[in-house]
Design a protein around this nucleic acid. Structure first.
Lengths: 142, 142
DNA sequence: ATAATATACTACAAAAATGTAGCATTTTAT
DNA sequence: ATAAAATGCTACATTTTTGTAGTATATTAT
């Protein structure tokens, strides 16, 4: 499972915005591009605004823009914001077998495996994503 | 999020059974030990039986035993069986930004990060878990 | 001013995951 | 034979996640 649909949506939205060249992204435009259910998308955009990743302007010519530099937003931050910071921190074997006894045997291995994934997600910013995307595009168009 | 509660339960059950010295594990005993909701636990045990990890015997003196050698059951197999084989294989940025265009820029990084985790989960069997558990126990008791 | 085009909010609906209850069936000790 | 102790099964209940509808509010072009 790894990520909830909601978190995937959030990453999809931010990832899309980060790799295009618009200033402003109205919800309706994102809907047309991403096909995330319309009202759900709007709610997520409001959430992402409240969480400080993007900023909104209302009224005609309104829409969403990034609230801070792409280089300051990494994937772990987005995941933590959407799923809660504890989501990536539970023991693989759960409570019982782990806590009841002594730290579960799998704990170390699991921590290590997960740590590597989290590290990659932490060190990669939306700016990195954009850079990679643009480079790939040049290569493909050639 | 990473794993559903159901999958955590399954790993908890099998991990617990793998690290103790009983032959036979009746549901009621596992309930007492693991505190997984009683009826849900029973259902999971039936599922795990149908999926071939454990075998059941009914009637008095019945219960559950491993259906195959501990060394032939790894964590990936259990996760795949519980969540479906595709669960660990979706693109981080989801469909739209990824497929609509060209393979999404994040894809490679994501694949790599996840692959490491899956590798660890694949190469670790319940026999490894048991071994580690027993070793830790000796150390702790000293 | 007003209409058009945005986001914000609230309440509800549907689907999926998790949890519960109760009875049926099987086996074995007595 | 019968009671006890176990799994198997089905149907329902609750909770969480995901999705929908409609109205309120803000901004700007005309």
């Amino acid at each position: 499972m790894i990520l909830s649909k909601t978190t995937e949506y959030a990453l999809s939205i931010l990832g899309f915005m980060a790799t295009r060249n618009r200033e402003l992204y109205p919800a309706e435009y994102l809907y047309a591009q991403l096909k995330i259910p319309r009202q759900y998308l709007r709610r997520l955009l409001t959430d992402l605004t409240k969480k400080g990743f993007i900023a909104s302007t209302r009224g005609r010519n309104g829409g969403f823009v990034f609230a801070r530099d792409l280089s300051t937003i990494n994937f772990s931050q987005v995941i933590d914001a959407m799923e809660g910071p504890e989501a990536m921190n539970t023991c693989l074997l759960g409570f019982a077998a782990c806590i009841a006894d002594h730290p579960c045997a799998m704990h170390d291995l699991w921590l290590e495996a997960r740590a590597k994934m989290v590290e990659t997600l932490t060190k990669t910013s939306l700016a990195d994503l954009r850079e990679k995307y643009l480079k790939d595009q040049v290569t493909n168009d050639k």
